[in-house]
Write a protein that binds this DNA or RNA. Structure first.
Length: 641
RNA sequence: GCCAGCAUAGCUCAGUUGGCCAGAGCAGCUGAUUUGUAAUCAGCGGGUCGGGGGUUCGAAUCCCUCUGCUGGCUCCA
């Protein structure tokens, strides 16, 4: 008999060789039906794999992240089996589960796989799933595995095996039906668990993530244990489509692109620009409270500036090429970031330690030649405005400055209605200390400052080793939007490199020159990207204070247009903005149009309202709230700001 | 940049294997209607079928190429 310890600390005895499935059955039949795999001593195992000695066991179901991963990983195998049936000669790379489903990288040989083939693949998978084939685990020697895949002619699997040989890893195969794959597992007990299937996309992907190697075809899918869950998923996807900032941006007339202007170069239309302006003003005020000083720098700078900063060497060839002038040999670059200009501002005169920290802020528009395939609406563009600032401080001031920036960022996110966020701390790779510039002591100091500051600020954090930039550790804010999707927003980065390259100094209390530390920070990241996320988070129903139009006055007929304009005037004096819909349309129509434009308040005025000096208030998405006097509406409105 | 797909009126789309002057709805314009909580009616205008080249008696439709867009990959100072 062996002792099985459960997550709640309970211990039960079972025969050696018991499986997680057996254990589940011993607890309840309902549970057994839901078990997909199990965590045995911390590793995820097949539910059908025998446990031979004492162990801690956690049963995993669809509700567990690892349970889902098992389910999707098995689904990847099932898809591979279907692909092999549909496209003879197809070769397989890797096929893992992801956060939202699974994919398999395949080399389809002569065939091409396009979205037209999805129904066919789904059908085949469903057909195979119904066979209720078990996923059988086989421990074999590496040489046997090599022989098998040589015979099959799958060079990708052979390459993976050679890698395993170097690692001296154990080799296991999994077989379901006629399909055998190199795989660590685990898998669900059999294929019939997979009830609902959707192939979602097909894309190119480089073998082993290396752009110099073979391009595979990556087929993405998602599966569910119940049809209903697929339906919910599809509904969510539809909701995401409705909220797509590119669609809403066009519909709400916020921004546009033009082929003639150029790819990835957004133009802000009046309403979008208002939104953008209000966001910037909000941040200006918050920054002023925290001791930032605004500067303005030009959009270009001499190539030498970027040779000094080191950016020319790293990005020069792959970015916008220099602008030449009538003067021989003179070259300027469109600025790809604001820091070199800000470093020059810092360096234009000597600084005393008493002046630090010096916080230089700018809404700086920068240009980067992003690869054409990377461009995406407002979230990835070639010209954008950063809500940038650079804080020059002494090393011992780092923590306090971090706290101040964290406070600013939290204020910003809260005001925007993002309640769900985490901070990702990116530290050095401890195994690779040579990759980084700056002394060991400085790094330790900076990393410590970030860790302590986030702790004191009460943030939920995740720490990533090796994700730091070569010039310093950083902290990124990850926010979750209304649909539960995660986005990276603002960033705070410590930089030891630029102060060095620009030879920046301050005179310390000891009357000796010292090197300041620089912090780059941008709570929004960029106005473009931030607004794209805000649009999708709110579905275009912006917080009242940001709405380009806060009300629409809808006269019942043109006899009330003058009264309507009077009301508009009264509200304008109270800083409430909106417009009068003077068209010769029926109110029903005016309401519909205002609803579609997502105007927060509709004020309907007719005979009764004019006589009573009132407005009939209707809230977008909610309906009629009844009549109010204009001052009543104004205070009702202000209460919701 | 790479792989795959897409590009028809301002927008959303129809135009199935090549064949008479390329269609619809919405939007726009003009007129009528003076309207009470999500689309009033009528008339009119609008397209070198993304650009260029080719195949063909004939191309929106087939081929090549360029541009842009979409989904990923790679990248993201």
């Amino acid at each position: 008999m062996i002792n099985i310890t459960f997550p709640d600390g309970n211990v039960r005895q079972y025969e050696a060789g018991v499986t997680a499935m057996d254990i589940a059955k011993s607890i309840s039949h309902g549970l057994a039906k839901k078990v997909l795999s199990a965590k045995v001593n911390g590793d995820v195992w097949d539910a059908t794999r025998p446990i031979s000695s004492d162990a801690t066991v956690q049963l995993l179901t669809w509700d567990d992240k690892d349970g889902k991963a098992t389910f999707w990983h098995s689904s990847a195998h099932l898809m591979a089996e279907a692909l092999e049936a549909l496209y003879p000669g197809v070769k397989f790379g890797t096929g893992p589960a992801t956060d939202g489903g699974f994919y398999y990288d395949v080399d389809p040989g002569q065939h091409t796989i396009s979205s037209d083939d999805f129904p066919k693949i789904e059908q085949k998978m469903l057909e195979l799933a119904r066979h209720k084939n078990t996923f059988d685990r086989k421990d074999i020697s590496l040489d046997e595995a090599v022989r098998f895949f040589e015979e099959k002619g799958d060079e990708y699997k052979l390459e993976l095996l050679e890698k395993r040989r170097a690692e001296q890893a154990d080799i296991t195969l999994y077989q379901q039906g006629g399909f055998i794959d190199l795989c660590r597992g685990p898998h669900v007990p059999d294929t019939s668990y997979i009830k609902a299937i959707k192939i979602t996309k097909v894309a190119g992907a480089y073998w082993q993530g290396d752009e110099n190697r073979q391009q595979m075809t990556r087929v993405y899918g998602i599966t569910f244990p119940k049809q209903k869950e697929l339906a919910e998923y599809e509904k969510m996807m539809e909701e995401a489509r409705q909220r797509d900032h590119r669609k809403l941006g066009a519909e709400l007339e916020l921004f546009m692109f033009s082929d003639r202007v150029g790819q990835g170069l957004p133009m802000w239309l009046p309403k979008g620009n208002q939104l953008r302006d209000r966001l910037m003003n909000f941040l200006r005020v918050e920054q002023e409270k925290r001791g930032y000083q605004l500067v303005t720098t030009p959009h270009i700078g001499k190539k030498d500036l970027y040779i000094t900063s080191g950016h020319w060497a790293k990005y020069g060839e792959d970015s916008f090429h220099p602008i030449t002038t009538p003067k021989e040999g003179e070259e300027f670059l469109l600025k790809p970031m604001n820091c070199p200009h800000h470093c020059e501002i810092y360096g234009h005169r000597p600084h005393s330690y008493k002046e630090l920290p010096l916080r230089i802020a700018e809404f700086g528009t920068v240009y980067r030649y992003e690869q054409s395939g990377e461009l995406h609406g407002l979230s990835r563009v070639r010209g954008f405005t950063q809500d940038d600032a650079h804080i020059f401080c002494m090393p011992e001031q780092l923590k306090e400055e971090f706290l101040s920036v964290l406070d600013l960022t939290k204020t910003v996110l809260a005001r925007m209605g993002f309640e769900n966020f985490t901070a990702q701390i990116s530290l050095r790779d401890p195994d690779n200390p040579d990759k980084y510039i700056g002394s060991d002591e400085n790094w330790r100091n900076a990393e410590q400052a970030i860790i302590e500051a986030t702790k004191e600020a009460g943030l939920t954090t995740v720490t990533e080793l090796g994700e730091a930039a070569f010039y310093g550790p950083k902290l990124d804010f990850m926010v979750k939007d209304a649909l539960g999707r995660s986005w990276q927003l603002g960033t705070i980065q410590v930089d030891y490199n630029l102060p060095e390259r620009f030879g920046l100094e301050y005179i310390g209390a000891d009357n000796q020159p010292h090197r300041p530390v620089m912090i780059h920070r941008a709570p929004f990241g960029s106005m473009e990207r931030f607004i794209s996320i805000l649009i999708e988070h709110t579905g275009g129903k912006f917080p009242l204070w940001l709405a380009p139009e806060q009300f629409a006055i809808l006269p019942i007929s043109d006899r009330f247009n003058d009264y309507a304009k009077g009301v508009q005037q009264q509200l304008a004096e109270l800083d409430i903005r909106g417009f009068v819909d003077e068209r010769g349309e029926k109110v029903g129509r005016k309401i519909r149009d205002a609803e579609v434009r997502k105007v927060p308040f509709m004020l309907i005025v007719g005979e009764q309202e004019m006589e009573g000096q009132q407005v009939a208030v209707r809230k977008q998405g909610e309906g009629d709230l009844g009549a109010m006097s204009v001052p009543e509406f104004a205070s009702f409105f202000k209460a919701q700001l």
